[in-house]
Design a protein around this nucleic acid. Structure first.
Lengths: 237, 237
DNA sequence: CGGGCACTTGATAGTAATCAAGTCCGGTGG
DNA sequence: CCACCGGACTTGATTACTATCAAGTGCCCG
């Protein structure tokens, strides 16, 4: 069987389903079945995929792009809970329980996703119980993440939280550079502020201070060059 | 079959497994099998059931009592993540993945638990797949809880968080009283502080203020009489 | 009844939010 | 290609709040 036969045309020279840990236990033949169930969709920067408080009936797998999941308070403040990128999936919580989404998901850049509808997904779980285990694993990872965020917001100083978030971005989105690590920031200053529960002015000030200390270099609004990783690691404690 | 035959002797006139939503889809006969797998244990106030960073190999179901799950920072600060009481279970995350516990669990009062060992539990899941669904549901609930906590800590004022926690305790541990709702506090002032990420002094001050405003009455260190629930609800926004 | 621990209350200081100007950068149109 | 425009960011001054430090007070338990 030629590779082209089971290749998903919208998935940029790859089987989108293959990139997801969710389906990692399946072989190529099983993946073909899944790919046939997949609906492709593209969202522009700033466009919402899911709205807080509304029900949603698909599993979303990010093929290429980045999104943020956030809650909005009555006063209009935004708290970012998750940043999802290539290979991540979400929406599973609403497929397993019949509850509206607890947060809005919005594209941070042009984002290509694969959707699997509720009914199809439930059939898949029946047929391949390993998928349910993978979902539980992912729910567990997400709990770990939030447990750490709560600890950080409840007990750590603002400096420590800034350091944490820069290191997080360095690990997720950083590339090697002769002078250190080049970080493509997924969020604006305001976004970073809304991610760690402070104001945008404070993010500006603290990052300027880190630049003065020689820990990093601010390159425009969307990039950082991290020069001294260990300084941030020390600041976290 | 007489009721006594399948009654779990250590479970205070009840089948402990029956009280748990985890096993709600099973009939009495199936429950007997589970009860035969259960190990009973009692922890004194202040005793730890699970230590942060250590692996643990049982599902814990609380039969009677209260525990707190918390992380401790390097500087010794404590962040409480969960309060579990009668019928709640935990430890499932470590049974599904091979990772040490992310937090310590400690008894807030004398607590009787039922333990199911990892191997037994995995057999149960195989035999009764509904249990896996219940676990996913519970993981989802726990995510909802933490997502709300993060939003609260990131965007809300201290007054709002105090109000939230009092209402939470009123709903979980409150009993009707002619003058309002009588709340048995599961945590000390310091515990409440560690739950919402502030200091014990601030908890004292804010609660005194609420008493002065006539919202509640402080009865010793372990009880509150909530007089004006709507005042707290207004303060949350 | 005495002692200790948790809690309350007060004074002070530190830190980030808020309010308020500027400045920089990228994109657009001439 | 350059000038302009607007949004995002930076920086500064002030305010507000809570942490911290420091004494008491009171409640519970032996």
């Amino acid at each position: 069987m030629a590779k082209g036969v089971y290749m998903c045309k919208s998935c940029h020279q790859d089987i989108c389903a293959k990139r997801v840990s969710l389906f990692s236990s399946l072989d190529d033949e099983q993946l073909i079945k899944i790919i046939n169930l997949v609906i492709h969709k593209t969202y522009k920067k700033g466009e919402a995929l899911i709205f807080e408080g509304q029900s949603f009936n698909s599993l979303v797998i990010i093929n290429k792009g980045q999104v943020k999941g956030f809650k909005t308070t009555i006063e209009g403040k935004e708290q970012i809970l998750y940043i999802f990128s290539d290979g991540d999936f979400f929406g599973e919580k609403n497929l397993l329980r019949n509850q509206p989404s607890g947060y809005t998901v919005e594209a941070l850049e042009e984002t290509h996703v694969c959707l699997i509808e509720k009914g199809d997904f439930q059939t898949l779980i029946q047929e391949y119980p390993d998928i349910a285990l993978k979902i539980m694993e992912e729910l567990g990872n997400r709990l770990d993440h939030l447990e750490n965020v709560v600890e950080s917001m409840g007990t750590k100083t603002v400096d420590s939280r800034i350091s944490s978030v820069i290191l997080e971005f360095a690990n997720k989105f950083g590339t090697d550079d002769p002078r250190g690590t080049l970080i493509e920031l997924p969020l604006s200053r305001e976004g970073i502020a809304n991610y760690i529960g402070i104001t945008r002015e404070t993010v500006s000030r603290k990052m300027s201070m880190l630049q003065e200390e020689g820990v990093l270099e601010i390159i425009g609004n969307k990039k950082l060059l991290l020069l001294d990783r260990s300084a941030l690691e020390r600041a976290i404690e």
